[in-house]
Computed example of a mutant assay.
Amino acid sequence: MAVDNEGAARGSHTTGGADGTPWEPDWDDEYAPVVKAAGRQIKLWRESAGLTQQELGDAIGYSLGMVSAVERARRLPHPEFLGKADEVVGAGGKLAAMKKDVEEARYPKKVRDLARLEAEVVEMGGYNNHNIHGLLQTEEYARALFNMRRPAHSEDDLERYVAARMARQEIFKRRPTPTLTFVQEEATLRRPLGGRMVLRQQLEHLLEIGRLRHVEIQVMPLDREEHAGMGGQLQVLKLRDGTAVGYCESQLNTRVVSDPKEVQVLELRYGIIRAQALSPRESLAFIEKLLGEIT
Rank of each mutant, 00 (worst) to 15 (best):
V198T: 08
V215C: 12
V183Y: 00
M230V: 02
Q201N: 14
Q233D: 09
Q201A: 15
L199P: 13
V198G: 06
L212E: 08
L193D: 10
H205S: 14
P192D: 10
G195W: 13
V219N: 12
R211N: 13
G195T: 05
E208M: 12
A228S: 14
E185H: 08
E225N: 13
Q218Y: 02
R200P: 11
R191W: 02
E216T: 05
L206F: 01
H227V: 02
M220N: 15
H214N: 15
H205V: 05
G232L: 06
R213A: 12
E225A: 15
L206D: 10
R191L: 03
E226P: 07
L203P: 11
G194L: 02
L206V: 06
Q201D: 15
Q235M: 05
L222V: 06
Q235Y: 07
H214C: 06
H205W: 08
E226V: 03
R211D: 14
L222E: 14
I209H: 00
Q233S: 09
G195C: 08
E186W: 03
L212S: 11
L207S: 11
Q235P: 12
G195M: 09
G194P: 01
P192E: 07
P192C: 13
E208N: 08
V215F: 09
E225Y: 11
Q202F: 07
R211Q: 13
G231P: 12
E208T: 04
H205R: 13
G194N: 01
M220K: 06
E186N: 14
H227W: 11
R211I: 11
L212A: 12
L212H: 09
R190D: 02
L203G: 15
A187R: 07
Q218V: 00
R190V: 00
H227Q: 08
P192H: 04
E216P: 00
R224S: 14
M230H: 13
V219T: 15
E186R: 10
L199D: 08
E204F: 00
I209P: 00
L207Y: 03
E216Y: 02
V219F: 03
P221G: 03
H214T: 13
E216G: 02
E186P: 11
G194I: 04
V219P: 08
R213P: 12
E216W: 02
Q184L: 13
L207P: 05
D223P: 04
E216V: 01
V183F: 00
E226I: 07
R200S: 14
V198D: 05
